[in-house]
Lab assay of single mutants.
Amino acid sequence: DTINITLPDGKTLTLTVTPEFTVKELAEEIARRLGLSPEDIKDTHNGKTLDPSLTLAEYGITPGSTITLEIK
């Protein structure tokens, strides 16, 4: 299953994830792909900052969802 990550420059990154991924694991994968530190990444969905300890499923993030990435 894939989700879309909207980057600060407007580009989109597509990642393969499972509903059990935590937001922290997602940030780590994004950081790895972009050459950043996971601590520099802030993920938001529907205007809410995502708690790193919760899973994508707990936020109702499903395949095809879009998450907005902010760099701290």
Score class of each variant (00 low, 15 high):
Asp1Tyr: 15
Thr2Gly: 05
Ile3Pro: 04
Ile3Gly: 02
Thr6Val: 15
Thr6Pro: 01
Thr6Cys: 14
Thr6Glu: 13
Leu7Arg: 03
Leu7Glu: 02
Pro8Leu: 10
Pro8Phe: 04
Pro8Gly: 10
Gly10Ala: 02
Gly10Ile: 01
Lys11Asn: 12
Lys11Arg: 12
Lys11Thr: 12
Lys11Tyr: 13
Leu13Met: 10
Thr14Cys: 10
Leu15Arg: 00
Leu15Glu: 00
Thr16Gly: 07
Thr16Ile: 12
Val17Ser: 01
Thr18Cys: 05
Thr18Leu: 06
Phe21Asp: 04
Thr22Phe: 01
Val23Arg: 01
Val23Ser: 01
Leu26Gln: 00
Ala27Val: 15
Glu28Leu: 09
Glu28Phe: 09
Glu29Met: 08
Ile30Glu: 00
Ile30His: 00
Ile30Met: 05
Ala31Ser: 08
Ala31Phe: 10
Ala31His: 06
Arg32Leu: 10
Arg33His: 13
Arg33Ala: 11
Leu34Lys: 00
Leu34His: 02
Leu36Phe: 10
Leu36Ala: 07
Ser37Cys: 14
Glu39Trp: 04
Glu39Tyr: 08
Glu39Met: 15
Glu39Cys: 15
Asp40Val: 12
Asp40Trp: 15
Ile41Thr: 03
Ile41Glu: 01
Lys42Gln: 13
Lys42Tyr: 15
Asp43Phe: 15
Asp43Gln: 15
Thr44Lys: 14
His45Gly: 09
His45Ser: 11
Asn46Cys: 14
Asn46Arg: 08
Thr49Gln: 11
Pro52Ala: 13
Pro52Cys: 12
Leu54Glu: 03
Thr55Leu: 04
Thr55Met: 03
Thr55Tyr: 02
Leu56Ala: 00
Leu56Tyr: 01
Leu56Cys: 04
Ala57Phe: 12
Ala57Met: 11
Glu58Val: 01
Glu58Pro: 00
Gly60Pro: 02
Gly60Val: 01
Gly60Tyr: 02
Ile61Leu: 06
Ile61Asp: 01
Pro63His: 08
Gly64Thr: 02
Gly64Asn: 04
Ser65Phe: 07
Ser65Gln: 07
Ile67Tyr: 03
Ile67Gln: 01
Thr68His: 14
Thr68Asn: 12
Thr68Leu: 13
Glu70Cys: 12
Glu70Arg: 04
Ile71Tyr: 09
Ile71His: 07
Lys72Glu: 12
Lys72Met: 13
Lys72Pro: 09
